[in-house]
């Protein structure tokens, strides 16, 4: 039940954010409820092991292999799991493909839902009030903040991640990339292009 009439216990912690986290970590550690070495491991995972390079490999392969793309369309979760990209905040994946007619863009207006196994921890702007508030109402102006302009012939489709489904945008493959292998193609896939606030870069 909501407990709106109660005092908020968090006010008992120190107000400074860094001290507040430290105080809570200390209290929990002294009671054996958390192990600081496990926290180090979690941080190392998201700083060094899981990030947008995972998603870029999926996109590069989707650009290169029509059968792979077809499998992604049918069941993206199973396909990326086979590549080792499954887990927390990526338990049910769906891909959305950009075309000359439709540009896809992902937001979470209610919190900060984001496909962690493929893109890592979301950047600050994705979690900002401005992005959460504006992306659904004026996506073209938000795209302009990123330096992206779309023509009148391209419709914008904004995906508001309101459930435990996570969306990965497959950006359009840049022109002039016919001879490139998957590794080279992956280098053209930016994080923002897989959220839909950017485009893949030309070689």
């Amino acid at each position: 039940m909501p407990h709106d009439d109660h005092d908020h216990p968090h006010t008992l912690l120190p107000p400074d954010p860094a001290l507040r986290v430290k105080a809570l970590e200390t209290i929990l550690t002294r009671k054996g409820l958390i192990d600081p070495a496990a926290l180090d491991e979690i941080i190392d995972t998201y700083e060094n092991k899981i990030g947008p390079k995972n998603g870029a490999r999926v996109v590069a392969r989707a650009w290169s292999d029509p059968e792979f793309l077809e499998a992604l369309r049918a069941d993206a979760t199973a396909v990326v799991k086979d590549m080792g990209f499954y887990g927390r905040q990526g338990e049910h994946m769906v891909i959305v493909e950009n075309t000359p007619d439709v540009h896809n863009m992902v937001v979470c207006t209610l919190c900060s839902c984001y496909p962690w196994p493929l893109l890592g921890i979301p950047p600050g702007w994705y979690k900002s009030d401005a992005y959460r508030a504006r992306a659904v109402r004026e996506p073209r102006k938000v795209l302009a903040d990123f330096g992206v302009g779309l023509g009148d012939n391209t419709a914008v489709r904004v995906w508001d991640s309101t459930a435990e489904v996570r969306y990965l945008v497959i950006p359009m493959r840049p022109d002039g990339t016919d001879g490139l292998d998957e590794d080279a193609l992956a280098g053209l896939v930016t994080r923002d292009s897989m959220i839909g606030t950017g485009l893949a870069v030309a070689p």
Binding site: L110, D129, R134, A135
Partner: peptide, 17 residues
Amino acid sequence: HDMGGRYGDGAVVPEDE
């Protein structure tokens, strides 16, 4: 938290990838 569509939040500031 339900802020979709709200006015007045200003620019989105992109970050270095």
